[in-house]
Design a protein around this nucleic acid. Structure first.
Length: 602
RNA sequence: GCCCCCGUAGCUCAGGGGAUAGAGCAGUGGUUUCCUAAACCAUUGGUCGCAGGUUCGAUUCCUGCCGGGGGUACCA
């Protein structure tokens, strides 16, 4: 219940009331959750409908234990609760109400306003920050596109989720270490080298990445008619692995070209990495890794390949080396884990990789576990429990998987460019005097694309839908940016320092309570996003906050006129501006955590 | 074959043993002498894939089936 002051208070009052109501039960079943503040706190829910209050406790199971009607317990309970609260002026802001089997608790809007607005005014952008992660490294492996292939929308999820988790953990005081595990090694380079030698001159005079991509697609097409190409590709890769100069030079050229083009995209997305250790980075660590696994007695030969048998764990064998001796990606991942542990002593290592690779990570993590057992690593040095595969669903297009090989892919740069162009048109139509039209259009276009990607839970497969990404209305990034821009506009209109609020009693409406309740929960939302590795928690929260505020912003008085934030009533205006500023700060910070910029005007 | 994920409004998605199943988009009707209408308000729309089971209570948990996707040793 860290930080949730009101929840704790409600739990305490309720436990007190239960002890009073059920003294016999407290003796016979002292461990029952209703007699323990922390256990009862765990049972508190947020009411379905905000009008029902700020917290709710369902009493149905209690009805069973006490053999009483839940509604009856509830009405007796609320009488006692309200009595307790009335007698203690420190708790006078709480009230309880019985609604069927739900015991609903409310925090007075004025009190909520006082604590939340003061807190946010003081901490500003640091609201919701903590130092719980202080001194702890979190390795985040994300994005990891394949060299020599275009950066498709399929790679957006890993990039957006990873970049967001990076910021979330950083806000909680951890030291995140972002690693881009580039796919810069493997048999596809054999294919590219062969393709380049055969058709390179005709393809490579256009844009290099498009050229490489065309070569890749062409290779796969030709391979169907000419199986000997596959053998040539294998040979070329073998030559590369053996360090043949000609192959190595080609590889380096492909890698440099790709990296250059990826950097443009990362700049647009505002994503950065601490390391670009791709797969090739581990080439010189493979022998040591294999030796270590051999020494631990984990490796056996099977059908010519070197494997770790995992049958007793219900997993297919983990392949470490092919029959021809070439290593595989599992080997590189294992080497990567060992290297990262040695280098960073991470508290956790996250692998933001699609769910298609679930079995792969299960295998790799299991091998690590077996290695630690075999080597007798002391418990505090073991890393298995620190490793997490943060998996997510596919991005499909028209219900089909996108495939680079088939040439059926949507290029992220095109999507970003299209969204930005559309945003620009909108600005020109609506706010042509805006000073930085191009810069703002980019923030909006890119923000729309990122938000769309982070606005569904990560585990489900999503269909890429041009319309969904290019919509700026409703539950979208631009909706939040727009709300934020209007808040900034209010601050500009107010045109003076927002003074400390002296009287919070003007916050007395349901809609304001809702906004304040959401602001109050922001720190918990960040924690939840970190615990579940789920940026969606933040996007959905921000939409609720935006909608709740817009309701306040556009409410009307009895005469049907907009009840303005800025009015002749100086004190009322100052108080409302404190609320405006708080919402502005939280939306801007929330968007930042998602990797989205918030323009002050749009 | 076996394993995993998904199936909720026309569309895209939330919810996840209990309070009338929620949003956005699309549809319909409103709101601006303008604190940015990229907004707000109202309204239409659901046998929560199907069939059983557990339970006082299931859209939610369990089993089976149907439909979609993914994984299942030398790709990553």
């Amino acid at each position: 219940m860290t930080g949730d002051r009101y929840g704790s208070e409600i739990a305490r009052v309720t436990v007190k009331a239960f002890r009073h109501l059920f003294p016999d039960l407290a003796r016979s079943l002292p461990d029952l959750y209703i007699f323990h503040t922390d256990l009862l706190y765990e049972r508190l829910e947020t009411p379905k409908n905000p009008e029902m209050g700020n917290y709710a406790l369902p009493l149905f199971d209690l009805a069973k234990i006490t053999r009483k009607n839940p509604a009856e317990i509830n009405s007796e309970l609320t009488v006692v609760q309200n009595n307790v609260v009335r007698k203690d002026e420190n708790l006078a802001h709480l009230s309880f109400e019985a609604v069927g089997g739900f015991n609903n608790a409310r925090v007075s809007t004025a009190k909520l306003a006082e604590s939340v607005l003061k807190d946010i005014a003081k901490k500003a952008d640091d609201y919701g920050s903590s130092d719980e992660g202080s001194g702890k490294n979190i390795v985040i492996d994300f994005s990891s596109p394949n060299i020599a292939k275009p950066f498709g929308v399929g790679h957006l999820r890993s990039t957006a989720i990873g970049a967001s988790l990076y910021r979330v953990f950083e806000k909680l005081g951890y030291k995140p270490i972002g690693i881009n595990h580039l796919g810069d090694w493997g048999t596809q380079f054999g294919k590219l080298i062969v393709a380049y030698r055969l058709w390179g001159s005709e393809m490579m005079n256009k844009d290099p990445i498009t050229g490489l991509y065309d070569l890749y697609v062409k290779f796969h097409k030709e391979e169907e008619n000419d199986p000997s190409l596959s053998d040539k590709a294998r040979e070329a890769f073998k030559a590369l692995e053996d360090g043949q100069q000609e192959e190595a030079e080609l590889w380096k050229e492909f890698r440099d070209l790709s990296l250059q083009s990826f950097m443009q995209i990362y700049d647009l997305l505002n994503v950065r990495f601490d390391y670009y250790h791709g797969e090739s980075f581990y080439n010189d660590k493979m022998d040591i890794t294999m030796d270590r696994l051999k020494k631990a007695g984990l490796i056996m030969e099977s059908e010519g390949a070197q494997v770790v048998d995992l049958e007793q764990y219900d997993l297919p064998p983990c392949l470490l080396a092919k029959a021809d001796g070439a290593t595989l990606y599992a080997t590189r991942d294992i080497a990567g884990i060992l290297y990262r542990w040695q280098e960073f002593r991470f508290h956790k290592a996250l692998y933001v990789v699609g769910s298609a690779q679930r079995d792969h990570f299960k295998q790799v993590f299991k091998v690590i576990e077996l290695l630690e057992e075999a080597e007798g690593t002391p418990p505090e040095e073991r890393i298995r429990s620190r490793l997490h595969h943060v998996e997510f669903g596919w991005i499909k297009f028209q219900d089909k998987a996108m495939s680079t090989r088939m040439g059926n892919i949507i290029i992220l740069e095109d999507v970003l460019a299209k969204a930005t162009r559309l945003a620009r048109e909108m600005i020109v139509a609506k706010n042509p005097n805006l000073s930085d039209i191009d810069g703002t259009a980019e923030m909006i276009g890119v923000g729309a694309v990122i938000f769309a990607d982070l606005s569904t839970r990560k585990h489900i497969d999503v269909n890429f839908d041009w319309d969904a990404v290019l919509t700026f209305e409703g539950e979208t990034g631009p909706y939040l940016q727009y709300t934020h821009a209007r808040l900034c506009s209010l601050v500009r209109h107010y045109a003076r320092e927002i003074p400390p609020v002296s009287d919070f009693s003007c916050f007395d409406r349901q809609e304001e309570n809702r906004v304040l309740d959401l602001l109050y929960r922001f720190p918990q939302i960040i924690l939840e996003a970190a615990e579940t590795y789920e940026p969606y928690v933040i996007s959905s929260y921000l939409l609720n906050l935006g909608a709740a505020f817009n309701k306040v912003y556009q409410r009307k008085d009895d005469a049907g006129r907009i009840d303005k934030i800025i009015s002749d009533d100086i004190n009322l205006t100052a108080a409302r501006m404190a609320l405006v500023n708080a919402v502005r700060v939280v939306i801007r910070e929330g968007l930042r955590l998602m990797g989205i910029e918030a323009p002050e005007e749009m």
